[in-house]
Amino acid sequence: MAKASKPENQDEVIGGDPIAAALKQMHDAVASEELPDDFLRLLDEIDTKITAKKAAH
């Protein structure tokens, strides 16, 4: 996975901009939530498919 470094425009976008800081705070609030069960079930489905594919080989 290509890891994105801090983009050059971030100082311009975030620096001293309370709106950008508020947007980041909104993002972080959701991102820090625990994953709902529906997501965990989907991940289980994916894991099952991976396991089944390995077993088939």
């Binding site: 993002h27 820090s32 939530e33």
Partner: peptide, 21 residues
């Protein structure tokens, strides 16, 4: 497939936040 799955899991919090927005 496992690598893809791991990348997906790592991105889920940001994806949920983008969707919420």
């Amino acid at each position: 497939d496992k690598l893809f799955r791991d990348q997906l899991v790592a991105l889920l919090p940001s994806l949920r936040a983008f969707a919420r927005g």
